[in-house]
Design a protein around this nucleic acid. Structure first.
Lengths: 122, 122
DNA sequence: TTCTAAATAAACCATTTGGTTGAATAAGGG
DNA sequence: CCCTTATTCAACCAAATGGTTTATTTAGAA
């Protein structure tokens, strides 16, 4: 048995899953559409999505034969709060985050692995 | 090769490591002292500490035969910023976090697994 | 010098993770 | 009804994870 923080952080530790979350930030998506930009199999994406669901980071709702995925930031909030407790972090630069998002979404695709935010981290 | 966010979130996904971070929030500690409240072997703690070090969450400095561990929140900040980008989170209730910390540190010890913040999550 | 304490290294083990492929299930569309 | 599309299940695999125990290394204390 693992706590909500365990599953949330574990879910966030994978670049594919973080990228999925970033995509869902734009709009809700069907499983097939989520899978489209990635090179890996649909089954693999399906697994990633259930990990995100179990972590409470997204919700999936089936309408017809399509299963829609939507962001559900409850667990993300819990994790964020935990981290902010370590605090003294300077206020977030949301403009930088906007630029990051654009880069993330415009990427030639098919290449998911690296990519950090903030850009020149540390 | 994994990004800084990968290693940071992966490091945070383990309750033992999160608890170590919480302990270090109080003060810098030697490896043996970090290990003291836990049931697992010193070697296991040593591994956890190098994971935290590689993730950039702590720094270790050897003075004499004692290796001191101190919080180094750079990677934590990067991760926090990434998460706040998903934002719309209400401002953090730091008093609640204080209470959480007390509970976390006063715990009968030896029992590391569960424990979430915020307390009544979801 | 010798003993002891601090920390890591090395070898090992069970479990989990992230991926694959090939069925199976479910629900529209013609 | 049959075909196709959307999604998951099942079985499998290689690599990573979190733990163990038994050496080693290193440096202070007697």
């Amino acid at each position: 048995m693992s706590s909500e923080l365990d599953t949330a952080f574990a879910a966030l530790a994978d670049p594919t899953r973080r990228r999925i979350l970033t995509m869902l930030l734009e709009d809700d998506m069907a499983v097939t559409d989520v899978a489209e930009p990635f090179e890996i199999s649909l089954a693999a994406i399906s697994k990633h999505l259930s990990i995100l669901t179990r972590a409470g980071l997204i919700a999936q709702e089936k309408r017809g034969r399509v299963k829609w995925c939507k962001l559900q930031p409850d667990a993300l909030r819990a994790a964020s709060v935990w981290m902010q407790g370590f605090g003294q972090f300077e206020p977030v630069n949301l403009e930088a985050f906007e630029r990051f998002l654009e880069a993330e979404l415009d990427r030639p695709a098919e290449t998911c692995p690296p990519s950090t935010f903030p850009p020149a981290a540390q």
